Computed example of a mutant assay.
Amino acid sequence: MEIAITVAAIIFVIIVGMFLIHRLNAQHDERIGAFRYSDALPRISRRNRKSPRTTAPKGSPADATRRERRDGSR
């Protein structure tokens, strides 16, 4: 009899925990839905980074390898 009560109590605690987690996730989803990520913060501007970007060489990688061998550099 004691084992059945213990098992029932454990199952009840698990169900209550699942319900609480479900409610917390729903509240979290509502907060995320209400928050606007695209708005910039006032008085904070984004700096433009003017660093040079590396560009890939034109042509296939095999062409670059052929050019290196032709120039004599390995």
Rank of each mutant, 00 (worst) to 15 (best):
Y37W: 08
A64L: 11
D71W: 06
R43L: 09
D39S: 05
I10Q: 02
S73F: 08
R47K: 15
N48I: 08
L20W: 09
T65N: 07
I11W: 08
G72V: 00
A34D: 05
D29N: 13
G33W: 03
S73R: 13
I14G: 00
A56W: 03
F19Q: 04
R53G: 08
I44G: 04
F12T: 03
I3S: 14
D63L: 01
R69F: 09
M1V: 09
I10D: 02
A62I: 13
A62K: 12
T54R: 04
L24D: 12
R70Q: 15
S60P: 00
V16C: 06
R43P: 00
T54D: 04
V7D: 11
A4W: 04
A9F: 08
N25R: 14
A26E: 08
G59W: 00
K50V: 05
R53A: 08
A64H: 05
R74Y: 11
V16H: 02
D63N: 00
M1I: 07
A9D: 12
R31T: 10
D39C: 07
E2W: 06
F35G: 05
A4N: 11
R43Y: 09
R23G: 01
P61T: 02
I44M: 04
I10V: 08
L41E: 10
R36I: 11
A8L: 09
V7E: 12
R66T: 14
G59P: 13
L20P: 06
R31K: 13
F12K: 03
D39V: 11
G17M: 07
R74E: 13
G72N: 06
F35D: 10
I14W: 01
A56H: 03
V7I: 15
A4V: 09
A4G: 06
V13A: 07
R23L: 01
A26Q: 12
R67N: 06
I10A: 06
R23F: 01
A26I: 09
F12Q: 02
R74K: 10
H22K: 12
I3F: 10
I5D: 15
M18I: 10
R46P: 01
A40N: 00
R66E: 14
V16T: 06
E68I: 01
I14Y: 01
E30Y: 05
H28D: 10
P52Y: 01
F35R: 10
K58G: 08
P57N: 01
I14A: 06
I44C: 05
V16P: 01
R66Q: 11
V16F: 04
I14V: 15
I3T: 13
A9Q: 12
E30Q: 09
L24F: 08
G17L: 09
D39T: 06
E30W: 05
F35V: 04
R23H: 03
R67E: 09
N48H: 10
G72W: 02
R70K: 14
D29C: 07
Q27S: 10
I5Q: 15
R53F: 05
M18F: 07
A62P: 02
I21E: 10
A8D: 02
R69Q: 15
A62M: 12
R70Y: 12
V16E: 05
G59Q: 04
M1W: 07
P42T: 03
L20A: 14
R69S: 12
Q27P: 07
R36W: 04
I3W: 09
R31V: 10
I15V: 14
A9Y: 06
V7F: 08
R23V: 02
I5V: 15
I21K: 14
